[in-house]
Design a protein around this nucleic acid. Sequence first.
DNA 1: CCGCTCTATGTCAGTTCTGACATAGAGCGA
DNA 2: TCGCTCTATGTCAGAACTGACATAGAGCGG
Lengths: 180, 180
Amino acid sequence: MTSTLGFAILAVLAKGARTGYDLTAAMSRPLGYFWTARHSQIHTDLQKLLADGLVRFEAEHGPGPQGKKVYHLTPEGRVALREWVTEPARARPERDELVLKTYASWLADPAEVAELFRDQLALHEERIAEYERQQAGFQTVPATGEPAFGSYATLWCGLSYERHRAAWCRWMIEQLGAGA
Amino acid sequence: MTSTLGFAILAVLAKGARTGYDLTAAMSRPLGYFWTARHSQIHTDLQKLLADGLVRFEAEHGPGPQGKKVYHLTPEGRVALREWVTEPARARPERDELVLKTYASWLADPAEVAELFRDQLALHEERIAEYERQQAGFQTVPATGEPAFGSYATLWCGLSYERHRAAWCRWMIEQLGAGA
DNA sequence: CCGCTCTATGTCAGTTCTGACATAGAGCGA
DNA sequence: TCGCTCTATGTCAGAACTGACATAGAGCGG
Protein backbone atom coordinates (compact mmCIF):
# COMPACT_ATOMS: atom_id res chain seq x y z
CA MET A 1 0.00 0.00 0.00
CA THR A 2 2.96 2.29 -0.53
CA SER A 3 1.98 5.64 -2.04
CA THR A 4 3.68 7.05 -5.11
CA LEU A 5 5.59 9.46 -2.91
CA GLY A 6 6.83 6.42 -1.01
CA PHE A 7 8.33 5.05 -4.21
CA ALA A 8 9.83 8.44 -5.00
CA ILE A 9 11.61 8.30 -1.66
CA LEU A 10 12.78 4.74 -2.31
CA ALA A 11 14.03 5.79 -5.77
CA VAL A 12 16.19 8.53 -4.31
CA LEU A 13 17.44 6.30 -1.49
CA ALA A 14 18.38 3.62 -4.05
CA LYS A 15 21.24 5.90 -5.08
CA GLY A 16 22.57 6.21 -1.53
CA ALA A 17 21.64 6.79 2.12
CA ARG A 18 20.19 10.19 2.97
CA THR A 19 18.50 12.13 5.75
CA GLY A 20 14.90 13.34 5.46
CA TYR A 21 16.29 16.80 4.98
CA ASP A 22 18.40 15.68 2.03
CA LEU A 23 15.36 13.96 0.52
CA THR A 24 13.37 17.16 0.85
CA ALA A 25 16.11 19.09 -0.94
CA ALA A 26 16.30 16.47 -3.70
CA MET A 27 12.56 16.53 -4.23
CA SER A 28 11.94 20.25 -4.09
CA ARG A 29 14.13 20.70 -7.20
CA PRO A 30 16.51 21.38 -8.94
CA LEU A 31 17.03 17.64 -9.55
CA GLY A 32 13.43 16.78 -8.91
CA TYR A 33 11.80 17.35 -12.30
CA PHE A 34 9.49 14.44 -11.64
CA TRP A 35 7.94 14.60 -8.20
CA THR A 36 7.95 17.16 -5.44
CA ALA A 37 6.99 17.04 -1.76
CA ARG A 38 7.30 19.15 1.36
CA HIS A 39 9.29 17.86 4.27
CA SER A 40 6.14 17.32 6.33
CA GLN A 41 4.86 14.82 3.79
CA ILE A 42 8.27 13.17 3.43
CA HIS A 43 8.52 12.61 7.17
CA THR A 44 5.02 11.13 7.23
CA ASP A 45 5.86 8.74 4.42
CA LEU A 46 9.25 7.81 5.88
CA GLN A 47 7.41 6.63 9.01
CA LYS A 48 5.18 4.45 6.83
CA LEU A 49 8.12 3.00 4.89
CA LEU A 50 9.86 2.33 8.19
CA ALA A 51 6.81 0.51 9.54
CA ASP A 52 6.65 -1.56 6.34
CA GLY A 53 10.33 -2.47 6.65
CA LEU A 54 11.26 -0.90 3.30
CA VAL A 55 13.76 1.52 4.85
CA ARG A 56 15.86 1.65 8.01
CA PHE A 57 17.99 4.39 9.57
CA GLU A 58 21.17 4.91 11.49
CA ALA A 59 20.99 7.59 14.17
CA GLU A 60 23.87 10.05 14.08
CA HIS A 61 24.75 13.05 16.14
CA GLY A 62 23.49 16.20 14.46
CA PRO A 63 21.54 19.43 14.81
CA GLY A 64 18.00 19.66 16.11
CA PRO A 65 16.20 18.13 19.07
CA GLN A 66 16.26 14.63 17.56
CA GLY A 67 19.72 14.50 16.05
CA LYS A 68 20.15 13.08 12.58
CA LYS A 69 18.71 9.97 10.94
CA VAL A 70 20.40 8.58 7.87
CA TYR A 71 17.91 6.43 5.98
CA HIS A 72 18.81 3.61 3.63
CA LEU A 73 16.90 0.99 1.62
CA THR A 74 16.40 -2.50 2.99
CA PRO A 75 16.58 -5.44 0.56
CA GLU A 76 12.77 -5.58 0.74
CA GLY A 77 12.59 -1.92 -0.20
CA ARG A 78 14.80 -2.49 -3.20
CA VAL A 79 12.63 -5.39 -4.39
CA ALA A 80 9.42 -3.39 -3.92
CA LEU A 81 10.88 -0.50 -5.91
CA ARG A 82 12.11 -2.72 -8.74
CA GLU A 83 8.70 -4.38 -9.04
CA TRP A 84 6.89 -1.06 -9.07
CA VAL A 85 9.08 0.37 -11.84
CA THR A 86 7.69 -1.85 -14.57
CA GLU A 87 4.04 -1.62 -13.53
CA PRO A 88 2.04 0.57 -15.90
CA ALA A 89 2.06 4.26 -14.98
CA ARG A 90 -0.60 6.88 -15.20
CA ALA A 91 0.08 8.28 -18.63
CA ARG A 92 0.06 12.00 -18.08
CA PRO A 93 -0.23 14.57 -15.39
CA GLU A 94 -3.89 15.41 -14.90
CA ARG A 95 -3.55 18.93 -13.66
CA ASP A 96 -1.96 21.90 -15.33
CA GLU A 97 -2.95 25.30 -14.08
CA LEU A 98 -1.51 27.26 -17.00
CA VAL A 99 -3.40 25.17 -19.55
CA LEU A 100 -6.56 25.69 -17.55
CA LYS A 101 -5.97 29.45 -17.59
CA THR A 102 -5.42 29.22 -21.33
CA TYR A 103 -8.72 27.46 -21.75
CA ALA A 104 -10.42 30.47 -20.13
CA SER A 105 -8.12 33.07 -21.73
CA TRP A 106 -10.69 34.22 -24.30
CA LEU A 107 -12.43 36.04 -21.42
CA ALA A 108 -9.45 38.22 -20.55
CA ASP A 109 -7.55 41.08 -22.11
CA PRO A 110 -5.13 39.60 -24.71
CA ALA A 111 -2.36 41.98 -23.69
CA GLU A 112 -2.56 40.80 -20.08
CA VAL A 113 -2.60 37.15 -21.13
CA ALA A 114 0.41 37.77 -23.37
CA GLU A 115 2.19 39.22 -20.34
CA LEU A 116 1.48 36.00 -18.44
CA PHE A 117 2.99 33.95 -21.27
CA ARG A 118 6.04 36.18 -21.60
CA ASP A 119 6.77 35.54 -17.90
CA GLN A 120 6.32 31.82 -18.43
CA LEU A 121 8.55 31.84 -21.49
CA ALA A 122 11.34 33.53 -19.56
CA LEU A 123 11.11 30.80 -16.89
CA HIS A 124 11.26 28.06 -19.50
CA GLU A 125 14.24 29.62 -21.24
CA GLU A 126 16.09 29.79 -17.94
CA ARG A 127 15.39 26.13 -17.29
CA ILE A 128 16.42 25.11 -20.79
CA ALA A 129 19.78 26.82 -20.25
CA GLU A 130 20.17 25.12 -16.87
CA TYR A 131 19.26 21.66 -18.18
CA GLU A 132 21.55 22.07 -21.18
CA ARG A 133 24.39 22.84 -18.80
CA GLN A 134 23.55 19.70 -16.80
CA GLN A 135 23.37 17.62 -19.96
CA ALA A 136 26.75 18.89 -21.09
CA GLY A 137 28.12 17.55 -17.80
CA PHE A 138 27.52 14.00 -19.04
CA GLN A 139 30.35 12.98 -21.36
CA THR A 140 28.33 10.11 -22.84
CA VAL A 141 24.85 8.65 -22.33
CA PRO A 142 25.11 6.38 -19.27
CA ALA A 143 24.42 2.65 -19.75
CA THR A 144 20.92 1.53 -18.76
CA GLY A 145 22.14 -0.36 -15.69
CA GLU A 146 23.93 2.61 -14.11
CA PRO A 147 22.17 4.84 -11.58
CA ALA A 148 23.13 7.82 -13.72
CA PHE A 149 20.92 6.48 -16.52
CA GLY A 150 17.82 7.40 -14.53
CA SER A 151 19.07 10.95 -14.04
CA TYR A 152 20.04 11.32 -17.67
CA ALA A 153 16.74 9.95 -18.97
CA THR A 154 14.65 12.24 -16.74
CA LEU A 155 16.87 15.17 -17.74
CA TRP A 156 16.24 14.34 -21.41
CA CYS A 157 12.50 14.33 -20.71
CA GLY A 158 12.69 17.57 -18.73
CA LEU A 159 14.63 19.32 -21.48
CA SER A 160 12.27 18.11 -24.18
CA TYR A 161 9.32 19.21 -22.06
CA GLU A 162 10.72 22.69 -21.52
CA ARG A 163 11.34 23.11 -25.25
CA HIS A 164 7.81 22.03 -26.09
CA ARG A 165 6.47 24.40 -23.50
CA ALA A 166 8.60 27.31 -24.68
CA ALA A 167 7.42 26.75 -28.26
CA TRP A 168 3.83 26.82 -27.05
CA CYS A 169 4.42 30.09 -25.14
CA ARG A 170 5.91 31.68 -28.26
CA TRP A 171 2.94 30.57 -30.33
CA MET A 172 0.52 31.96 -27.73
CA ILE A 173 2.33 35.32 -27.59
CA GLU A 174 2.21 35.50 -31.38
CA GLN A 175 -1.52 34.73 -31.49
CA LEU A 176 -2.32 37.23 -28.75
CA GLY A 177 -0.29 39.93 -30.46
CA ALA A 178 -1.87 39.31 -33.85
CA GLY A 179 -5.37 39.49 -32.43
CA ALA A 180 -4.80 42.92 -30.79
CA MET B 1 -11.00 31.04 -1.52
CA THR B 2 -12.09 29.20 -4.66
CA SER B 3 -9.94 26.15 -5.38
CA THR B 4 -8.37 25.55 -8.78
CA LEU B 5 -11.01 22.96 -9.53
CA GLY B 6 -13.58 25.65 -8.80
CA PHE B 7 -12.07 27.79 -11.56
CA ALA B 8 -11.99 24.79 -13.89
CA ILE B 9 -15.72 24.43 -13.35
CA LEU B 10 -16.26 28.14 -13.95
CA ALA B 11 -14.17 27.94 -17.12
CA VAL B 12 -16.34 25.18 -18.57
CA LEU B 13 -19.55 26.90 -17.50
CA ALA B 14 -18.37 30.12 -19.17
CA LYS B 15 -19.05 28.39 -22.49
CA GLY B 16 -22.61 27.50 -21.56
CA ALA B 17 -24.88 26.09 -18.85
CA ARG B 18 -24.32 22.46 -17.89
CA THR B 19 -25.30 19.84 -15.33
CA GLY B 20 -22.80 18.38 -12.86
CA TYR B 21 -22.89 15.23 -14.94
CA ASP B 22 -21.90 17.13 -18.08
CA LEU B 23 -19.08 18.81 -16.20
CA THR B 24 -17.82 15.43 -15.05
CA ALA B 25 -17.82 14.17 -18.64
CA ALA B 26 -16.01 17.29 -19.86
CA MET B 27 -13.34 16.99 -17.21
CA SER B 28 -12.68 13.28 -17.33
CA ARG B 29 -11.42 13.62 -20.94
CA PRO B 30 -11.39 13.55 -23.95
CA LEU B 31 -11.71 17.37 -23.99
CA GLY B 32 -10.10 17.83 -20.63
CA TYR B 33 -6.39 17.78 -21.37
CA PHE B 34 -5.86 20.27 -18.60
CA TRP B 35 -7.67 19.25 -15.44
CA THR B 36 -9.59 16.18 -14.36
CA ALA B 37 -11.93 15.47 -11.47
CA ARG B 38 -14.38 12.79 -10.33
CA HIS B 39 -17.99 13.67 -9.99
CA SER B 40 -17.83 13.47 -6.21
CA GLN B 41 -15.32 16.31 -6.16
CA ILE B 42 -17.24 18.32 -8.74
CA HIS B 43 -20.43 18.13 -6.67
CA THR B 44 -18.54 19.22 -3.58
CA ASP B 45 -17.05 22.21 -5.39
CA LEU B 46 -20.34 23.15 -7.04
CA GLN B 47 -21.85 23.49 -3.56
CA LYS B 48 -19.03 25.84 -2.62
CA LEU B 49 -19.39 27.93 -5.78
CA LEU B 50 -23.13 28.09 -5.12
CA ALA B 51 -22.56 29.30 -1.55
CA ASP B 52 -20.14 31.94 -2.87
CA GLY B 53 -22.68 33.11 -5.44
CA LEU B 54 -20.41 32.35 -8.41
CA VAL B 55 -22.89 29.92 -9.98
CA ARG B 56 -26.64 29.36 -9.85
CA PHE B 57 -28.86 26.58 -11.19
CA GLU B 58 -32.24 25.99 -12.71
CA ALA B 59 -33.97 22.82 -11.57
CA GLU B 60 -35.37 20.71 -14.37
CA HIS B 61 -37.20 17.45 -14.46
CA GLY B 62 -34.80 14.59 -15.07
CA PRO B 63 -33.52 11.20 -13.95
CA GLY B 64 -32.40 10.37 -10.47
CA PRO B 65 -33.83 11.06 -7.03
CA GLN B 66 -33.06 14.81 -7.23
CA GLY B 67 -33.96 15.59 -10.82
CA LYS B 68 -31.61 17.70 -12.89
CA LYS B 69 -29.78 20.93 -12.08
CA VAL B 70 -28.51 23.06 -14.92
CA TYR B 71 -25.76 25.31 -13.60
CA HIS B 72 -24.73 28.63 -15.11
CA LEU B 73 -22.27 31.38 -14.23
CA THR B 74 -23.41 34.47 -12.36
CA PRO B 75 -21.89 37.84 -13.32
CA GLU B 76 -19.77 37.57 -10.14
CA GLY B 77 -18.53 34.18 -11.27
CA ARG B 78 -17.52 35.56 -14.63
CA VAL B 79 -15.59 38.41 -13.01
CA ALA B 80 -13.83 36.04 -10.59
CA LEU B 81 -12.81 33.79 -13.47
CA ARG B 82 -11.54 36.65 -15.61
CA GLU B 83 -9.44 38.00 -12.75
CA TRP B 84 -7.98 34.58 -11.98
CA VAL B 85 -6.94 33.95 -15.59
CA THR B 86 -4.17 36.54 -15.62
CA GLU B 87 -2.79 35.73 -12.18
CA PRO B 88 0.54 33.88 -12.39
CA ALA B 89 0.15 30.11 -12.61
CA ARG B 90 2.21 27.31 -11.18
CA ALA B 91 4.67 26.74 -13.97
CA ARG B 92 4.61 22.99 -14.42
CA PRO B 93 2.95 19.90 -13.13
CA GLU B 94 4.86 18.64 -10.13
CA ARG B 95 4.00 14.99 -10.40
CA ASP B 96 4.66 12.58 -13.21
CA GLU B 97 4.62 8.92 -12.39
CA LEU B 98 6.25 7.72 -15.59
CA VAL B 99 9.19 10.08 -15.14
CA LEU B 100 9.57 8.84 -11.59
CA LYS B 101 9.61 5.27 -12.83
CA THR B 102 12.23 6.29 -15.38
CA TYR B 103 14.37 7.75 -12.64
CA ALA B 104 14.40 4.33 -10.96
CA SER B 105 14.55 2.35 -14.23
CA TRP B 106 18.25 1.48 -13.90
CA LEU B 107 17.20 -1.05 -11.23
CA ALA B 108 14.92 -3.04 -13.53
CA ASP B 109 15.32 -5.33 -16.52
CA PRO B 110 15.77 -3.12 -19.63
CA ALA B 111 13.54 -5.37 -21.72
CA GLU B 112 10.67 -4.97 -19.24
CA VAL B 113 11.17 -1.21 -19.08
CA ALA B 114 11.19 -1.07 -22.89
CA GLU B 115 7.86 -2.89 -22.84
CA LEU B 116 6.46 -0.20 -20.54
CA PHE B 117 7.58 2.49 -22.95
CA ARG B 118 6.23 0.71 -26.00
CA ASP B 119 2.80 0.66 -24.32
CA GLN B 120 3.12 4.35 -23.52
CA LEU B 121 4.21 5.17 -27.05
CA ALA B 122 1.16 3.43 -28.48
CA LEU B 123 -1.09 5.53 -26.23
CA HIS B 124 0.62 8.73 -27.30
CA GLU B 125 0.35 7.85 -30.97
CA GLU B 126 -3.36 7.22 -30.56
CA ARG B 127 -3.82 10.58 -28.91
CA ILE B 128 -1.77 12.36 -31.54
CA ALA B 129 -4.04 10.93 -34.22
CA GLU B 130 -7.13 11.96 -32.25
CA TYR B 131 -5.88 15.49 -31.60
CA GLU B 132 -4.85 15.92 -35.22
CA ARG B 133 -8.36 14.98 -36.24
CA GLN B 134 -9.75 17.55 -33.81
CA GLN B 135 -7.35 20.20 -35.07
CA ALA B 136 -8.36 19.51 -38.66
CA GLY B 137 -11.92 20.32 -37.57
CA PHE B 138 -10.93 23.97 -37.11
CA GLN B 139 -10.88 25.70 -40.48
CA THR B 140 -8.76 28.59 -39.16
CA VAL B 141 -7.23 29.58 -35.83
CA PRO B 142 -10.06 31.20 -33.82
CA ALA B 143 -9.63 34.85 -32.79
CA THR B 144 -8.42 35.43 -29.21
CA GLY B 145 -11.79 36.76 -28.04
CA GLU B 146 -13.80 33.73 -29.15
CA PRO B 147 -14.55 30.87 -26.74
CA ALA B 148 -13.11 28.48 -29.35
CA PHE B 149 -9.71 30.13 -28.94
CA GLY B 150 -9.33 28.53 -25.52
CA SER B 151 -10.11 25.11 -26.93
CA TYR B 152 -7.78 25.56 -29.88
CA ALA B 153 -4.91 26.82 -27.72
CA THR B 154 -5.19 23.94 -25.25
CA LEU B 155 -5.43 21.51 -28.15
CA TRP B 156 -2.23 22.98 -29.62
CA CYS B 157 -0.54 22.47 -26.25
CA GLY B 158 -1.89 18.94 -25.91
CA LEU B 159 -0.71 17.98 -29.36
CA SER B 160 2.72 19.46 -28.82
CA TYR B 161 2.93 17.68 -25.47
CA GLU B 162 2.00 14.31 -26.97
CA ARG B 163 4.62 14.71 -29.69
CA HIS B 164 7.33 15.58 -27.16
CA ARG B 165 6.29 12.63 -25.08
CA ALA B 166 6.25 10.22 -28.04
CA ALA B 167 9.73 11.37 -29.04
CA TRP B 168 10.94 10.69 -25.53
CA CYS B 169 9.41 7.20 -25.54
CA ARG B 170 11.15 6.42 -28.85
CA TRP B 171 14.47 7.62 -27.46
CA MET B 172 13.99 5.49 -24.33
CA ILE B 173 13.15 2.37 -26.35
CA GLU B 174 16.23 2.93 -28.46
CA GLN B 175 18.46 3.34 -25.40
CA LEU B 176 17.04 0.27 -23.70
CA GLY B 177 17.45 -1.81 -26.83
CA ALA B 178 21.02 -0.69 -27.42
CA GLY B 179 22.04 -1.49 -23.85
CA ALA B 180 20.77 -5.07 -24.03
C1' DC C 1 29.49 36.11 22.21
C1' DC C 2 25.66 37.73 19.52
C1' DG C 3 22.87 36.99 15.74
C1' DC C 4 22.26 34.86 11.42
C1' DT C 5 21.57 31.07 8.33
C1' DC C 6 21.70 26.35 7.47
C1' DT C 7 20.84 21.79 8.97
C1' DA C 8 17.57 18.77 10.98
C1' DT C 9 13.62 16.86 13.18
C1' DG C 10 8.77 16.65 14.05
C1' DT C 11 3.31 17.91 14.71
C1' DC C 12 -1.15 19.39 13.28
C1' DA C 13 -5.32 21.58 11.38
C1' DG C 14 -7.42 21.98 7.37
C1' DT C 15 -7.90 21.24 2.16
C1' DT C 16 -8.19 18.40 -1.78
C1' DC C 17 -9.04 14.30 -3.86
C1' DT C 18 -10.17 9.31 -4.56
C1' DG C 19 -13.00 5.22 -4.59
C1' DA C 20 -16.84 3.12 -2.97
C1' DC C 21 -21.47 3.31 -1.85
C1' DA C 22 -26.30 4.69 -2.59
C1' DT C 23 -30.47 6.10 -5.24
C1' DA C 24 -33.42 6.38 -9.17
C1' DG C 25 -35.64 8.04 -13.74
C1' DA C 26 -35.33 7.51 -19.11
C1' DG C 27 -34.81 5.10 -23.12
C1' DC C 28 -33.72 1.15 -25.60
C1' DG C 29 -33.68 -3.68 -27.27
C1' DA C 30 -34.91 -8.52 -26.69
C1' DT D 1 -41.97 -6.14 -19.29
C1' DC D 2 -37.49 -7.37 -18.02
C1' DG D 3 -33.00 -6.00 -17.89
C1' DC D 4 -29.47 -3.11 -19.51
C1' DT D 5 -27.07 1.21 -20.04
C1' DC D 6 -27.05 5.99 -19.68
C1' DT D 7 -28.26 10.00 -17.25
C1' DA D 8 -28.22 12.24 -12.90
C1' DT D 9 -27.81 13.25 -8.11
C1' DG D 10 -25.60 12.86 -3.72
C1' DT D 11 -22.65 11.00 0.79
C1' DC D 12 -18.66 9.50 3.21
C1' DA D 13 -14.34 7.34 4.97
C1' DG D 14 -9.87 7.70 4.29
C1' DA D 15 -5.63 8.98 1.66
C1' DA D 16 -2.63 12.65 0.14
C1' DC D 17 -1.05 17.03 0.57
C1' DT D 18 -0.21 21.96 2.12
C1' DG D 19 1.24 25.60 5.13
C1' DA D 20 2.10 26.95 9.52
C1' DC D 21 3.98 26.05 13.81
C1' DA D 22 7.59 24.30 16.98
C1' DT D 23 12.33 23.04 18.45
C1' DA D 24 17.23 23.20 18.44
C1' DG D 25 22.32 22.20 17.26
C1' DA D 26 26.33 23.73 13.99
C1' DG D 27 29.01 26.97 11.87
C1' DC D 28 29.97 31.38 10.36
C1' DG D 29 30.87 36.49 10.40
C1' DG D 30 31.10 40.67 12.84
